Amino acid sequence: MTTKPTRNAAHREPISETEALRVDLEQTRQHLANTVQQLSQQLNVPHRLKETAGQAGHRAAEVAGQAGDRMKDVPAKVKQMPAMSRQHPKATAVVGGAVAVGVGAAAWMVKRHR
């Protein structure tokens, strides 16, 4: 492999082929060191688990805050239910029937497993 001699910026003199190979070797070593560092970061499982757990904790707190905000609207919606049931009596009957069937099935399963 022959490299074209280049000029040294500090001294403005041509670099020998041996010196060019040394420079190339040093750049390759630096690139390899960076690659090894990146791989070791990716393989550092305990550190990655801590990062992931921290991110999950932040997401859980955010979702809990959003759920709390939504729960503030529940009392107002519960107060609207009688008016909604008068507007949609068939839907109210279907939902009431489904709830009754669900409660009956749950009671039957509990009694059966005793």
Rank of each mutant, 00 (worst) to 15 (best):
V23Y: 09
H11I: 09
T2N: 09
P82L: 04
A60I: 13
A9K: 15
L32D: 09
R29K: 14
M81K: 02
A100P: 10
R7E: 00
P89R: 01
S40V: 04
P82K: 03
Q55L: 04
G104C: 00
V78F: 13
V95W: 00
T3C: 10
A60V: 14
H47Q: 15
D73F: 11
V95T: 03
R29C: 05
V63N: 07
E17M: 07
M1H: 12
G102A: 13
L39R: 07
R59H: 12
H88Y: 12
D69I: 02
N8D: 12
R70W: 06
T6I: 14
A93Q: 11
V110Y: 05
T28A: 15
K4N: 07
R48T: 06
D69V: 02
H113G: 02
A64F: 10
M109R: 04
L43P: 04
V78Q: 10
H47K: 01
T6P: 00
V95G: 01
K50S: 12
E51R: 06
P82W: 06
L32T: 09
P75L: 12
Q37C: 03
G104N: 05
R59C: 09
T3K: 15
A91C: 01
A67C: 04
M1F: 14
T18I: 11
E26D: 15
E17I: 07
A83V: 05
M71L: 10
W108T: 14
T18Y: 07
R22W: 15
R86L: 09
T92D: 05
